Simulated assay, not measured.
Amino acid sequence: MTRSLVIGGNGFIGSHLADKLTSMGRDVTVFDRFSHGIQNYNSRNVRQRVGDFLNVDDLRNAVKGQDEVFHFLSVTTPATAHSDPLLDIRVNTGQSVELFSACASAGVGMLYFASTGGAIYGENSAPKVSEHNPTSPKSPYAISKLSLEHYLEYFRLTRDLDYRIFRISNPYGPRQNPIKPQGLIPIVLRQILEGNPIQKFGDGSMIRDYIYVSDLVDMISTTLNVPSNHRVYNVGSGVGKSINEVLATVRQVTGSDLSIEYRPSPPTYVRRVVLDTTRFHSDFGAFQAISLDEGVARTWQSIRESAKAR
């Protein structure tokens, strides 16, 4: 049985990934702080390893005996990294390198890394960006992700640590923390539920590629134990939606009139990012993602149920 460690496995994507890996028959361990005593994943057959990503000894102990490690934790968000780039370097870049080193020393067979497809390419005139497009990150968050991609190649060349990188678009869905300043869809839905105005940055024409979290982990799971000639993959829906289109969908799903407060777009915002997932589908097969309407409806239902449970 494959022993799988999910770093950040109690978080948004990590908890869904832990559930998926367990359903595939893997021996799953979740590494997280569990700071609020809440378990976000549903699977019972999961080992909890309480630890701090900023503690090197915790990382070294966690990776021992693991066949594969999924690095799906980020201590900062794009907003906090923008506010304090040095903090992002210390706690994300530095500690991730510590994790890579620990994995190499422990003989981990494969490391899977959650990078960013929504920001790593920067401004690009192409209708869709592929892995062949140049990377030109504008934000500290994306700069850190690209740096870590290069560090993974360094550890492969020098210490035989194999890896696969997922450049993920804009994931959304249940378990995403709407309190954090990241994720347009859950933030907007939470504001509607609480009767608060929605902050809209710019004129609403900014386009992103949104992928529902269950589709995301299903796509990732299809790559496991499948050999390929590539180590970097775009993972997204391949469909671009503007902020205005997302808000129209939210309005339709919730049946709510939106009270909007307009804000200027931050200087690090990229106008358009839609991922070309041709490489992924060529190597791992076709995948049909659910529509934005359906994904928003499921997310809205989950947020309302969570609010009632409090």
Rank of each mutant, 00 (worst) to 15 (best):
S83W: 00
F70D: 14
S35R: 02
G25M: 07
D32L: 03
G37H: 06
G51Y: 07
A62G: 07
F34H: 11
L59I: 08
P78I: 11
N61E: 15
Y41I: 14
V63W: 01
Y41N: 03
S35L: 04
D32T: 14
S23E: 14
Y41W: 06
K64M: 05
D27A: 06
R33T: 15
N61Q: 13
S83I: 07
L59H: 05
L59E: 15
G25W: 07
R44A: 12
R60K: 11
S83F: 01
I38M: 05
V30K: 00
R49W: 02
G51S: 05
V56F: 13
H82N: 06
R60E: 15
G51M: 05
S74H: 04
V75W: 07
S23W: 06
R49P: 03
L73P: 01
H82C: 04
N45H: 06
Y41S: 03
D67W: 00
L86P: 00
V56I: 15
R44G: 12
P85I: 15
H71N: 09
R44F: 09
R33S: 12
R33K: 05
S83Q: 04
F72A: 14
R49V: 10
D32F: 01
T76C: 02
T22P: 02
N61T: 15
N40Y: 04
Y41K: 03
E68H: 00
F53A: 04
F53K: 00
V63S: 08
P78W: 13
Q66P: 00
N61L: 09
D32W: 02
T29Q: 07
V63N: 04
H36D: 15
R47F: 02
D57I: 13
Y41R: 00
D84F: 01
H71I: 08
K64E: 09
A79L: 08
S23Y: 03
N61Y: 12
V28N: 06
G25N: 01
D52I: 04
A81H: 05
I38K: 08
D67L: 05
D58S: 05
A79I: 09
V69D: 12
L73Q: 12
S74D: 13
N45F: 01
A81D: 14
I38L: 07
T77L: 06
V75D: 11
D27N: 09
F72G: 09
T29Y: 10
R26M: 11
F70Q: 13
G65F: 10
R44W: 10
G51A: 08
K64W: 10
Q48S: 01
I38E: 14
